[in-house]
């Protein structure tokens, strides 16, 4: 059906791009049939479009250079947090990758599942045991921080540090020494473990569990686990295994905190 609308240059462009409704298309074709010059120009522009595709479409089939896929493997900053929180909110089971990567290059490395699960469980148990303590939450208080750190470093046989989490509203209460895991009958005595305790203004407590590893695992991604009512983010950084536990913070907050701890330990 003829609409009798004047044919504009925009109509011709849309005709070339195949973006006209059928009826309008027929009108353009009828119009072009009476104008040889215009018809030839439009035909040339259509083949121009085809030539462009012929020239550049092969790029689509080329292998993507590694430097580009590497960039794309990174997790966008703010989305990474939202993503991990989303995973956690789904009630992710213990040991599910939180979607957060400590280090893009080594992101694919994960702690062996048994080791990771064991640090998460031990940390959660230690958290549940000591964080409700009113009178004796720690062995050495934050007022003797230099002594605390020196003592724990000596007992662990490696330099440990207590991150400063005041920016997140948590102050250091102090720390304690815990027995290492493992079966004493199976071999040498496992190295003891350190626990730092932090407290927020509402009394909520967060503990950082620090273990020395028997070998260098490189770096691993953050993993999230839930043990009873305790949430844990854990990771391994070279010769240390870390687990950050809380019974109060939601997972997004805990993840943010884990990231803060990680950055402080790796300035």
């Amino acid at each position: 059906m003829n609409t009798n609308l004047p044919i504009t240059e925009a109509d011709l462009q849309a005709y070339i791009d195949g973006r006209l409704a059928h009826g309008r298309c027929a009108e353009i074709e009828a119009w072009l049939a009476t104008r040889a010059d215009e018809a030839e120009r439009v035909a040339q522009l259509r083949s121009q479009r085809d030539a462009l595709r012929a020239l550049y479409d092969p790029v689509l089939g080329e292998p993507v250079p590694e430097r580009l896929t590497r960039v794309a493997q990174r997790v966008p900053r703010s989305r990474g947090i939202a993503l991990a929180a989303g995973w956690a909110a789904l009630g992710a089971v213990a040991g599910v990758l939180a979607g957060w990567q400590l280090h893009s290059v080594q992101a694919s490395r994960m702690p062996p599942l048994s080791e990771g699960a064991s640090i998460a469980r031990s940390a959660a148990v230690a958290h549940a045991t000591y964080s409700p303590e009113v009178r004796h939450p720690v062995e050495v208080g934050a007022d003797q921080q230099a002594h605390l750190v020196a003592w724990l470093s000596k007992r662990l046989g490696a330099p440990v540090r207590a991150p400063v989490l005041d920016a997140a509203g948590l102050s250091l209460v102090g720390g304690r020494l815990l027995p290492g895991e493992g079966d004493p009958a199976a071999g040498p005595q496992p190295a003891p473990v350190a626990q730092f305790m932090y407290q927020g203004s509402k009394g909520q407590r967060v503990t950082l569990y620090v273990r020395t590893e028997t070998r260098d695992h490189g770096e691993t991604a953050f993993r999230f686990a839930r043990e009873g009512s305790v949430s844990v983010f854990y990771w391994i950084d070279r010769k240390f295994g870390y687990a950050l536990s809380s019974g109060d913070l939601d997972r997004a907050e805990l993840l943010r905190l884990a990231n803060l701890v990680y950055r402080q330990l790796n300035p």
Binding site: L55, V59, V64, A72
Partner: peptide
């Protein structure tokens, strides 16, 4: 996660356009 994959999937098209540009 899906968005990351979606971006990876779009790389060939970004490359085609950039090559022509």
């Amino acid at each position: 996660m899906d968005e990351r994959q979606a971006i990876v999937d779009l790389i060939p098209r970004l490359r085609r356009y950039a090559r022509a540009l």
